[in-house]
Design a protein around this nucleic acid. Structure first.
Length: 218
DNA sequence: GACTGATCATAG
DNA sequence: CTATGATCAGTC
């Protein structure tokens, strides 16, 4: 699929998918719907990437690099609440000195996001889920300030090697949680004394309470 | 029902 | 292993 040439084109393409079931979308793309949702955690996002012509692959940059837009699917319950937090990117665990918010992957990815709600009733099979109404979003000044403060708080813990103080309770909008294939996956980091240490890879996530605001105020 | 820590698939 | 795409599942 050809990447969209503009924001408007991307939004129009996404809006055209509203009301479509994932079964129908998979059919259009000649994709097979996985039988076991547990083994298909990223399937919905990848399906939408294919349909809309995303270009980033596994590079740490927005999905639609040419027009600077990140694509995020978000599972939404019958009551309109996000069913899950939203993964943003991997958290840097080493070489953290001198990193600034303005140059961070979190800021880069969240500057412009196309949110695609996926209506997901309780225990809904993958192929029964339905695409909702997509919308474009950029952080307001207030949202940006809170995200920045959260990021700086997290990065201070990482830079000082306070790995044991990192948990999902820190951060107002942005939290840090494990991001790994299993508990045995490890990455290089430092302890409080600056000595090398191996620890579980982490990622930045947006709390559901935050994304609920985005879903509500459109 | 919200929340945290753990996990699943795949490309490079 | 690192990055992408996320959701699972037990606990609070």
């Amino acid at each position: 699929v050809k990447p969209p040439a503009s924001e408007t084109e991307l939004l129009r393409r996404a809006e055209a998918l509203g009301g479509m079931s994932l079964r129908a979308l998979a059919g259009r793309l000649n994709a097979t719907v996985p039988g076991d949702p547990k083994r298909a955690k990223g399937w919905v996002g990848e399906l939408l990437e294919r349909e809309l012509g995303a270009t980033a692959g596994n590079r740490p940059e927005p999905d639609f690099a040419a027009i600077g837009i990140e694509l995020k699917t978000i599972p939404v319950s019958e009551s309109g609440r996000p069913r899950e937090s939203t993964f943003v990117c991997v958290a840097p665990m080493k070489n953290t000195i001198g990193l600034r918010w303005d140059a961070s992957t979190v800021k880069l990815k969240l500057e412009r996001v196309l949110w695609v709600p996926v209506l997901t009733p309780n225990r809904a099979a993958l192929d029964e889920r339905m695409i909702g109404r997509p919308f474009l979003w950029s952080p307001s000044a207030e949202q940006s300030a809170v995200l920045r403060a959260d990021w700086e708080e997290h990065m201070e813990l990482l830079a000082l090697g306070h790995i044991d103080e990192i948990n999902a309770r820190v951060g107002v909008y942005l939290q840090i949680r494990p991001k790994a294939l299993s508990g045995s996956q490890l990455t290089d980091t430092y302890d409080e004394g600056g000595a090398p240490l191996r620890s579980l890879p982490r990622g930045f996530y947006l709390r559901p309470s935050f994304t609920y605001q985005l879903l509500s105020h459109r």
